[in-house]
């Protein structure tokens, strides 16, 4: 074999090896968590709050807290994110406002999550006086997920065939009527997949909520927007680093990691699968 064919074979072998290594690592990580966490997983684990200085009991409080955080964050992020996507796809002209908005969204996408935490701390917690709370943490998460939501919904709107719009305009519909009656319904399923992905991203974030509202421990679930909440990712961090019984609570830690992983990857794979199905439908 000469050098050229050898180099060609090397590329094939190396790239296969890289792919197998990546797959191996991911399978090992997930497998490890499943094997270690599986034993504590039960219905009781999900519906019981942590007890006895978090050395026993379940993860009901942080699980519900995460769902509350996601819910409130989405309440703010969805309208703004979808509106911005709609603006880019339907209204944006090639002007100053549009380029500044694009620049802002692109910049937001790169802001480190801990910096969002600082921002949330100074604006929502201190200046607006929400204190460390469900509301402050959720607003911080909403800001963090905005770029993802915008990009996903813009793509969803752009994927609506131009014929639909033309047909609507030809019937004498106005721009807003066309958007509301034709574009929004046609894009809605894809927009929803974008929302699902955002939910997955938000549910797994830790750094932005560490000083804006995540509680080390709370005896019960948050009953007001201004209470602190426990959250799954932060609960993992607390149990693994700051608890008094780090070694004793390992099984609980693995169990919590497993639940978080199932939650995030489950939601996101649902979103990705749905989107690929929709794309295939659209292409027909």
């Amino acid at each position: 074999m000469d050098g050229r064919r050898f180099a060609d074979m090397m590329m094939t072998v190396l790239s296969w090896a890289a792919a197998l290594l990546l797959t191996g690592m991911v399978v090992a990580i997930i497998g490890f968590v499943v094997v270690r966490g599986y034993s504590v997983l039960s219905l009781d684990f999900l519906i019981e709050p942590p007890r006895d200085s978090m050395t026993r009991g379940g993860i009901m409080t942080p699980l519900v807290g995460t769902l509350q955080l996601v819910g409130v964050a989405m309440f703010f992020a969805i309208p703004v994110g979808v509106a911005t996507g709609l603006y880019f796809a339907e209204y944006a002209r090639d002007d100053m406002f549009t380029s500044i908005l694009r620049l802002a969204i692109r910049s937001l996408a790169g802001v480190p999550s801990v910096v969002f935490g600082l921002f949330g701390l100074s604006l929502f917690v201190i200046l607006l006086g929400f204190g460390p709370s469900l509301l402050a943490a959720a607003l911080t998460l909403a800001c963090l997920t905005l770029p993802l939501m915008v990009t996903a919904s813009e793509q969803a709107f752009l994927a609506v065939p131009k014929d639909y719009r033309d047909a609507s305009y030809a019937l004498g519909a106005s721009k807003w009527q066309t958007i509301r009656k034709v574009v929004l319904p046609a894009a809605a399923p894809t927009v929803i997949t974008g929302i699902i992905l955002s939910v997955g991203r938000v549910a797994g974030e830790t750094a932005p909520i560490m000083f804006t509202g995540a509680a080390f421990f709370a005896p019960h679930i948050a009953r007001s927007l201004f209470s602190e909440v426990m959250a799954l990712p932060y609960h993992i961090y607390v149990l693994a680093t700051a608890g008094t019984f780090i070694e004793e609570t390992r099984p609980i830690q693995y169990g919590t990691v497993l639940v978080l992983l199932l939650l995030v990857l489950g939601i996101c794979s649902g979103g990705i699968y749905m989107r690929s199905r929709l794309r295939r439908l659209m292409r027909r």
Partner: peptide, 22 residues
């Protein structure tokens, strides 16, 4: 259209606020 544009400007404000508060 004006409402949509107004809502989308939130992104600009958030970015400016982040810089400002930091």
């Amino acid at each position: 259209g004006i409402v949509v544009k107004g809502m989308s400007s939130a992104g600009i404000f958030i970015m400016i606020f982040i810089l400002y508060f930091l």
